[in-house]
Nucleic acid binder design. Structure first.
Lengths: 114, 114
DNA sequence: CATAAAAGTGACTTTTTTATCCCTATGGGG
DNA sequence: CCCCATAGGGATAAAAAAGTCACTTTTATG
């Protein structure tokens, strides 16, 4: 049995798992921002993301727990921390590029159907 | 400027667009189910998805509006309709396989960290 | 004549997710 | 001294999403 057939028999679990990990309004934007080099929370907030600190922290924590990010605490004052992509996080970015490409197709189609 | 760099300058729009289109608890499961041949709402409900008819219809409608699905109404009685994947929907399935593969990696890692 | 099958929706409730506000801690600049 | 930046969390409010229930339509079946 090939991979696809097996996955279907096993009732979509890995996909469900993946979706759970990236569900959250700001999770994909966060991963995207970090991938662009905005690793400090304060940097992310100065960027395009209009998200509250509280909420940002929640989502960062979940991404960390899922192994997508890891945190580096410099133990300085004023505080300085950085969030980096793990290997898993970098693999996610590759998937996000595919999704981005699909989004481009989606946009093109919307324009066509105007 | 290459595609990636341009996308970054344009502030992630296509990705945001894509995420919007698939956001919804049952949208990915629906696309998945249809891809497996369960095209009628009643079939989907008999499957693994414990979703209410009301909610199923809402999400089907949105997927249809976004051009991921198209609906075939047989105009029979009792009613018979089918939802099929559009070309865009089939392209989405390809992305979902990538996401599924990422989910497998995620699962493996969870098991390792037990 | 009651019931089932099938797709669909309006009105409403519950649950989940996000957002807001205020608090902590610490050292430096004015 | 007071305020700033910086990261973080508790309590709570608001918004969004999902779920529930009751109803419709039409034909066939018992």
């Amino acid at each position: 049995m090939n991979t696809k057939a097996r996955a279907i028999e096993e009732k979509i679990c890995p996909l469900e798992f993946a979706v759970n990990a990236i569900s959250g309004k700001w999770k994909i934007p966060i991963v995207w921002q970090i991938n662009q080099g905005h690793k400090r929370p304060s940097e992310m907030l100065k960027g395009i993301m209009k998200v509250d600190r509280r909420v940002l922290n929640q989502q960062l924590k979940e991404l960390e727990q899922d192994g997508v990010l890891y945190k580096v605490n410099y133990n300085e004052l004023p505080p300085k921390v950085e969030y980096h992509l793990t290997s898993l996080g970098e693999q996610l970015v590759e998937v996000l590029w595919k999704l981005n490409a699909w989004g481009e197709t989606l946009l093109k189609q919307k324009e066509t159907n105007k």
